[in-house]
Amino acid sequence: MENIVLKDQVCLTIPMDRDMELVAAKTGSVLAELNHFNEEQTEEIQLAIIETCINAFEHSQSEDRTVIIKYIVKADELECKITDHGVGFTPEDQHNSIARRQEIHSEMRKRGWGLEITKTLMDEFDIESSENGTTVSFIKRMAS
């Protein structure tokens, strides 16, 4: 079966509630599987969606308490754009938040990994953030 290419994107809106990130991850998983991403890549896409969503749940301070996930399916790649309407953040905020944490083993810090994990697992990664909210975008390309 040939890969699906969607003229229009799939869009999911979830409340910032317990385990809702799984709904977003599983939707991404179906689209990745339909497009013949392998099992490992599909898991990577799910993890990236989970981490970005829980980051928004925990840190966005969004009043509407929703996250919007847009899945853009192309012939050989899947792009996700994950948006919240929270207060936004700067790279300095992120760095300071990590630096403030005291850990027994500094290299094995407990929290603040979400966006780093996403960045490592995906082929392209971008953050747009302002006082009106944040959009994290990432692209996973099919392995050749």
């Binding site: 991850a25 993890l47 829980i54 027994i104 994990i117």
Partner: peptide, 20 residues
């Protein structure tokens, strides 16, 4: 366990520290 998030992993680190 097919999926683990970073909050779950942070709790695994606490178990490592308790054992240490």
């Amino acid at each position: 366990t097919a999926l683990i998030n970073s909050i779950g992993i942070s709790i695994l680190i606490e178990i490592i520290e308790a054992l240490e």
